[in-house]
């Protein structure tokens, strides 16, 4: 889907065309889900935040001037709702400090269903992924989002300098490799 197509589809959805809307959902649901699942939220809350992100898009169709920015808009909206939920629930508020990425603060991250994975290696990767810090998990989810987010957008969402994303990415992958190696796998 190129940018012009997306513009046409957005306008059709804004006019209430269900097929156009389904196309948007299909195209961007993985991206929104990846953003929401970067937080330690229950399945129910994750579902609610995903839904409010779509409802806000429906409400704000008119304000999306550049269809190319739709992915970033959805991801930013979803992340904002996640942070708001964490504040209401009185849970830890992620800070923008680098140290967050160095803390070993993995707790009740959303479970990955390893049973859905055929390959033993993928199950080991899922295991290892859940053992790295929550901040690394969030960053890696954003970096592997589909459709992809630009580094600039990820940096803005996380409130970090663009130049820090590459080195942090390298550090998070290094941790993941270390866990995989300990588990007996060659990363």
């Amino acid at each position: 889907m190129d940018r012009d197509d997306l513009g046409v589809i957005l306008r059709a959805a804004a006019d209430g065309n269900q097929q156009a809307w389904d196309t948007i959902v299909e195209r961007f649901e993985r991206l929104v889900w990846a953003t929401v699942r970067g937080f330690r939220l229950s399945d129910e809350v994750s579902a609610d935040i995903m839904q409010i992100t779509w409802l806000k898009l429906v409400e704000k169709f008119d304000t999306i001037r550049d269809p190319e920015r739709l992915g970033a808009w959805l991801a930013t909206t979803a992340r904002h709702e996640c942070l708001k939920h964490l504040r209401v629930a009185g849970r830890a508020i992620p800070t923008d400090e680098t140290e967050v990425f160095d803390r070993d603060d993995h707790r009740d991250s959303p479970a990955l269903d390893a049973a859905l994975l055929d390959q033993e290696r993928d199950r080991a990767l899922a295991d290892a992924f859940l053992q790295i810090s929550e901040s690394c998990q969030e960053l890696l989810r954003l970096l592997t989002a589909d459709p992809p987010l630009a580094y600039e957008d990820i940096a803005e969402m996380l409130g970090r300098p663009v130049g820090s994303i590459g080195p942090t990415r390298a550090r998070c992958l290094e941790r993941l490799r270390a866990v995989l190696t300990t588990a007996g796998y060659t990363p």
Binding site: E29, Q51, L112, L125, L173
Partner: peptide, 30 residues
Amino acid sequence: LLDEIGEMLRVADPVPDHVRLAARSAVAWR
């Protein structure tokens, strides 16, 4: 490794069907 992670997450953390269905109904609130 990032590609592997992306593929692993796609399979092991899918968008639940009820979430997708709700998403499709969202446009009715226009």
